[in-house]
Design a protein around this nucleic acid. Structure first.
Length: 290
DNA sequence: CGATTAACCTGGAAGC
DNA sequence: TGCTTCCAGGTTAATC
């Protein structure tokens, strides 16, 4: 499910419940998700306080008292939900699950019981997600985090970041999906950002050697990510917030999932096209994306 | 080196 | 009502 905006939405939903909370018990329904759970996962968490909840790219980082960090990735279909919270307005609305992919308790894989009565449940039908637990001091060296590029939400991200592609002939689409230069983008937001920038996804990434194009694309990425976070992410099938409500940025897609529809750019009479690039669908308007 | 493809898994939608 | 095929917000190992 999740690109950066969806993971950030989940982080913001979990933060008020997890930050400062003490883990009473952890229950695993199976020995592995995509990868096995780390050694003594349950024992290393039980009785500990959660100090903070961060995010790097599409990874959630739970800072645990005692110097360890829990790393969680949602894969394609992972979600967290909160149970047992009495606070008004934070209860899961009964109809909410039915709107996203139907939830099945068979896919509840991890339960974190917190002191005070709340339980955080990780559900993941496809099990492409995973969790790891490691000393916080080793975090940057974790194989999954070590190669990640700049966050598009950070002040460090600019047109100059994209100049790294100046000598790359790979298509723009593939370049932006690669997490090594800019990190956090996935299939949806790459398509949307390239449409906003008016760039053809098939163009060689070396087009970004042009300062003008790099500026346009950088601000398109920045804007689409910020707007999507603001909207609580995009719900296609699985993504939901921790209270069970859905993201709504999907209603603002210009091209993603809009094959055959007229291009929304004022003055453009093109039609949204779907093609296949490196095994994934790309949506774009061939008439105004050059 | 760079660039596609297959694989990991389940379930929903579309086609016949 | 089936039964089959395709497709999905990701990542990575294997294969050109």
């Amino acid at each position: 499910m999740p690109e950066l905006p969806e993971v950030e939405t989940v982080r913001r939903g979990l933060q008020p419940v997890l930050e400062g909370a003490v883990v009473l018990a952890v229950t695993l329904a199976r020995p592995a998700l995509r990868y096995p759970f780390p050694e003594r996962f349950v024992e290393r968490l039980a009785g500990r306080r959660i100090l903070g909840l961060g995010r790097r790219s599409k990874y959630l980082l739970w800072e645990i008292e005692g110097g360890e960090t829990l790393l969680a990735h949602l894969g394609m279909s992972g979600s967290f939900r909160i149970e047992g919270l009495g606070a008004p307005g934070s209860q899961t609305s009964p109809g909410a699950f039915a709107l996203a992919r139907s939830r099945d308790v068979r896919h509840d894989h991890v339960r974190f019981e917190l002191k005070g009565g709340a339980t955080v449940v990780y559900n993941d039908p496809r099990r492409f997600g995973f969790m790891d637990l490691l000393p916080t001091t080793d975090l940057e060296r974790h194989p999954r985090l070590a190669g990640l590029g700049i966050e598009p939400t950070s002040n460090a991200f600019a047109a100059a970041t994209l100049a790294a592609f100046a000598d790359r002939r790979t298509p723009l689409k593939a370049a932006l999906l690669d997490q090594a230069v800019v990190t956090g983008l996935g299939n949806i937001y790459v398509c949307e950002a390239l449409w906003r920038a008016g760039l053809d996804p098939r163009r060689p990434a070396s087009v970004l050697a042009d300062q003008n194009e790099a500026e346009k694309l950088a601000s398109a990425i920045r804007a689409v990510i910020a707007e999507a976070i603001e909207a609580g992410g995009s719900t296609l099938r699985d993504h939901m917030r921790t209270d069970g409500t859905l993201g709504y940025f999907q209603h603002r897609f210009a091209v993603y999932n809009r094959e055959g529809e007229p291009c929304q750019r004022p003055g453009c009479d093109g039609t949204v096209l779907r093609i296949r690039q490196s095994g994934r669908s790309t949506f774009f308007c061939p008439s105004c994306q050059r």
